[in-house]
Design a protein around this nucleic acid. Sequence first.
DNA 1: TCAATAGTTTAGAGCGATTCTAAAGTTAAG
DNA 2: CTTAACTTTAGAATCGCTCTAAACTATTGA
Lengths: 141, 141
Amino acid sequence: MTQERPYAQTLTRLREAGLRPTRQRLALGRMLFEGGDRHVTAEALHEEAQKAGVSVSLATVYNTLHQFTEADLLREVVVDSSRTYFDTNIDDHHHFFIENDGALMDIAGDEITIANLPKAPDGTDIARVDVIVRLHSRPRS
Amino acid sequence: MTQERPYAQTLTRLREAGLRPTRQRLALGRMLFEGGDRHVTAEALHEEAQKAGVSVSLATVYNTLHQFTEADLLREVVVDSSRTYFDTNIDDHHHFFIENDGALMDIAGDEITIANLPKAPDGTDIARVDVIVRLHSRPRS
DNA sequence: TCAATAGTTTAGAGCGATTCTAAAGTTAAG
DNA sequence: CTTAACTTTAGAATCGCTCTAAACTATTGA
């Protein structure tokens, strides 16, 4: 048990990010940050909240995910042109993406080595390098 | 001049892909495949066609881009969650993406070395590895 | 403790990209 | 030419997401 006061912890995170700890943000924050790395879509998180009996509008879920991202509590992952994923792991790392079922999995930053990266074109700076390993799941035999 | 009968060339490509060479597909095919590597969105290609005096509906542009992709004449590039890009370069390669203006540029496959790629999780196969180097363009001084 | 104020949430309208539908138009084959 | 199979198209529909403006809530300071 490394987390003894999870509520307080999320509360602190929000405060540090300059976000008022509202009922909605606390609830979403706890769902996201307690219990390890997660990859969620707005729809999925909204549904999860509903099921947990937390009443939050979809608009608020979107707002919150963006505010958290802005505050570096989350990171956006672009792997699918039809929906946006948010990742609770904000360390440098990459992803496996199973195209069949939309599942995302982290690949630790040091598990992949990228060498010979060409330098950025004039007038631009590298903001980030994303590696996405696209997978197809084999049907179970 | 390496292309002397571009019309015929596109025609052949379509035939080989099992797609009837209709006026629309020929026109779009020529816009895409003559004149080097291109990155287009459906909207942009549609507009380009209109300006060139080629009458094609947006629905057909979408259909065609997907059929071409299906036939391995194009490749879809996922870099922006708000629109889909199609790339005429179907070789193994990666991308620079300038987030400010939505510009995409190829990085030849052999210009980047990826080492220590972890093996795909059980039950899955690697379909492709995409590297996206996200750039921010510095404002001109 | 209680306003006043600033920041939040929300329902529902709005939007932009993409897909669907089904009717009209084309191409390929014989 | 006919016919059958395939294509195109306009417009409606859908989907994920954002916007708006009104209702709510946290914070601040008297």
